[in-house]
Simulated scan of single mutants.
Amino acid sequence: MRREKLPVTLFIRGEQYFDDVDPDATELVTEGTLELMEEGLRLTYQETSLTGMEGTTTTFEITGPQVTLRRAGTVNSQMVFEEGRQHTSLYETPYGELSVDIQTSALRHNLSDRGGLLEIRYSIAVEHTVTGRNSFKIRVKRKN
């Protein structure tokens, strides 16, 4: 199968929920690529100053029931999402590494070479202490 990087527009909405506080929401519209692979799909885009991670490349790899989020550049991290399962990752910061537990409560997508939607809801625990619940929706629109 030929690997092809298709130009796409990504509409990203992330929300963070903390106890008894309105969700903190971030919205970003950015250009990226959608790559079809034998084992799934890959979405890639550059972070901006809006997300506080300028100089970082973010990649979502969707393979079967699992989504892997990788960041490389000014921020380096890897997070694995799989509905109903917990995965532990290392999160690099300028001040050192943290152990992060990701518990995914919902993972849905209908992505294809035409675009689609990826939705993930998860809770995050830093050094085994839950710090909040997060969700993000990424709408992928193929550019003509």
Rank of each mutant, 00 (worst) to 15 (best):
M1H: 13
M1G: 13
R2Q: 14
R3M: 15
R3C: 08
E4D: 13
E4L: 14
L6V: 11
L6H: 09
L6Y: 03
P7M: 09
P7F: 06
V8P: 07
T9R: 14
T9W: 08
R13K: 15
R13P: 09
G14K: 02
G14Y: 04
E15I: 04
E15G: 03
D20W: 05
V21S: 14
D22A: 15
D24V: 07
D24R: 07
A25V: 15
T26A: 14
T26F: 15
T26Q: 15
T26W: 13
L28K: 06
V29P: 03
T30Q: 01
G32L: 05
L34Q: 12
L36M: 10
L36W: 05
E38Q: 06
E38W: 03
E38I: 01
E38H: 08
E39G: 09
E39M: 09
G40L: 06
G40P: 00
L41D: 06
L41M: 10
R42P: 09
Y45A: 01
Q46V: 02
E47S: 04
E47N: 00
T48E: 00
T48D: 01
T48K: 02
S49T: 06
L50Y: 08
L50K: 08
T51D: 06
T51K: 05
M53P: 01
E54C: 08
G55F: 01
G55E: 05
T56Q: 00
T58G: 00
T58W: 02
F60G: 10
T63H: 15
T63D: 10
P65S: 15
V67S: 12
R70E: 12
R71N: 11
A72S: 14
G73P: 11
T74R: 09
T74Y: 09
T74E: 14
V75T: 11
V75N: 08
S77A: 12
S77M: 14
Q78N: 08
Q78L: 12
Q78K: 08
Q78R: 10
M79T: 03
V80H: 04
E82V: 05
E82N: 05
E83Y: 01
G84K: 12
R85Q: 09
R85M: 05
H87A: 03
T88V: 05
T88C: 01
S89D: 01
Y91H: 00
Y91C: 00
Y91A: 00
P94R: 01
Y95Q: 00
Y95I: 01
Y95V: 00
E97H: 00
S99N: 00
S99Q: 01
T104F: 04
T104E: 09
A106T: 11
A106G: 08
L107W: 10
L107F: 11
L107C: 10
R108A: 06
R108M: 01
H109M: 08
N110P: 06
S112E: 09
S112M: 06
D113A: 13
R114D: 15
G116A: 12
L118T: 07
E119A: 13
E119M: 10
E119T: 13
I120M: 09
R121T: 13
R121F: 15
Y122T: 10
Y122N: 09
S123I: 02
I124A: 05
I124H: 05
H128T: 12
V130A: 13
T131Q: 12
G132D: 06
G132T: 04
R133V: 13
N134A: 05
N134V: 03
N134F: 07
S135A: 13
S135R: 12
S135C: 11
F136D: 07
F136R: 04
K137T: 15
R142I: 12
R142T: 14
N144W: 03
